[in-house]
Design a protein around this nucleic acid. Structure first.
Lengths: 238, 238
DNA sequence: TCCTGTTGACTTGTATGGTAGTAGGCAAGT
DNA sequence: ACTTGCCTACTACCATACAAGTCAACAGGA
């Protein structure tokens, strides 16, 4: 449930704690960060040797990742990193849009000054890393959205969004060097502004537009890396 | 991912297919249907013997159910059916409300006559079983909501709602004999009506109200079965 | 050259044994 | 009576062994 991405290189297994959950997190991170590429084959015994454990914990980690739509186990054949499902990504965006718009709407009704301050601090922080580390910006972006949910007393809602987001994040990490960070920050600012003005409708609209922007690069990415995607036909979608 | 509830009594294990997923489904069904009660202890070896398999598949089924928030594994202590988390249920409702309102909104924009017909057929079907089998009504209710998502071309979205719904369904099954079925059908009808009239705002509002109604009985249930719930303090929540 | 049947090295799925940790009862000591 | 320490019966977790299916390479015959 607590599924933060971890630094793949610096990571090490803690033999004091249970192994399977740790493997789950690191494998999840590697997939979302596009370190393990779509269609890449994952061998149970190979990973077991690599991390110095037996097959069983690896296998259990696999199972949870299948549930999250990141892995595909073909019995007696092999386990593979799932290609990105175009439709799943769009569905994820739909869910996030609906939920986060409502969250922001709730916040706009109250416009708590302390919250506004807190969010504006995050905005300046985002600007600071903007032209330095896109990867770091993604983390701050995540923090920003979680803050919105928490402030609305709906932190638990974010847990439900976790698998939804993982699909979208894979897309972002493929070309994270080209993120239109400046624009994303402007949109964040717009959201905060509208919350502050207590304009519920405008705040919701800004949120929806922002979440659409996130996937603006999707068609482009799909054209650049068609092999990463499940169904290339979706480009011609209605 | 395909997680329909199964008939607990008539169910039997198919030795041709993989065991773990089957166990997952049947255990999930038993928990949601309140056959396995909150705080109930589940013994790995005992269930293994009961279903005539080894411990490993049972364990793997457990892991997926932990992810879904239905089970809790306390290492070296035991595995228990989770009590219902009041907050998780409310958060689930929040997510469903946001998402399904948007779905219905989309439908209201088009108001496809064939869809309207299809939905009205379901409504009469619902009325038919209304005063006969509450359990069957719950299934039809599920069908109704799935139909809405499918019609909007968002069937995939429903997959994301599955874990959300499981929390809510547990509540419904505890007192499913007392479901205000007539009222729920009226609300379904209201939704269809507003879709037909292409009144987007009204359709969304009707959907939201309906989903709030579903959990109207929650405080009452919590009072009747306080042991089933995680945190009884939530009753005084804002 | 092409087709076919077999073999063997893979894979995941299942079964089982061993390890470490927990909880509770019981007995000895205070 | 009360506390303390041990001991037994449990638990989840991990390791390992076995079973069953898949796939590709290869040998042999048409």
């Amino acid at each position: 449930m607590a599924l933060a991405l971890v630094d793949i290189d610096a990571w090490q297994l803690d033999h004091g704690k249970a192994v399977s959950p740790q493997l789950r997190i690191v494998l999840r991170s590697r997939i979302i960060r596009n370190d393990l590429k779509p269609m890449c084959r994952l061998s149970e015994p190979e990973l077991a040797k690599e991390y110095g454990v037996s097959r069983q914990p690896v296998r259990e980690a696999f199972i949870t990742l299948v549930d999250e739509g990141l892995l595909e186990i073909r019995p007696q054949r092999g386990t593979f990193v799932k290609r990105i499902d175009f439709e799943a990504v769009l569905n994820g965006r739909f869910v996030r849009e609906a939920v986060e718009a409502d969250i922001v709407g709730k916040l706009a009704e109250r416009a708590d000054p302390a919250l506004i301050r807190h969010l504006r601090e995050q905005l300046t922080e985002q600007s600071r890393v903007a032209d330095r580390s896109p990867e770091q910006f993604i983390e701050l972006d995540e923090t920003f959205h979680i803050s919105l949910a928490s402030a609305a007393g709906l932190k638990g809602v974010w847990d439900y969004l976790e698998p939804v987001k993982s699909q979208m994040d894979r897309v972002r990490f493929i070309t994270f060097e080209e993120l239109p960070i400046a624009r994303l920050i402007r949109q964040h600012t717009e959201i905060v502004d509208q919350i502050e003005r207590q304009d519920v409708a405008a705040a919701k609209a800004a949120t929806r537009q922002h979440l659409r922007e996130i996937l603006n690069s999707l068609p482009e990415i799909q054209e650049l890396y068609p092999d990463y995607f499940e169904n290339s036909r979706a480009l011609t979608g209605e």
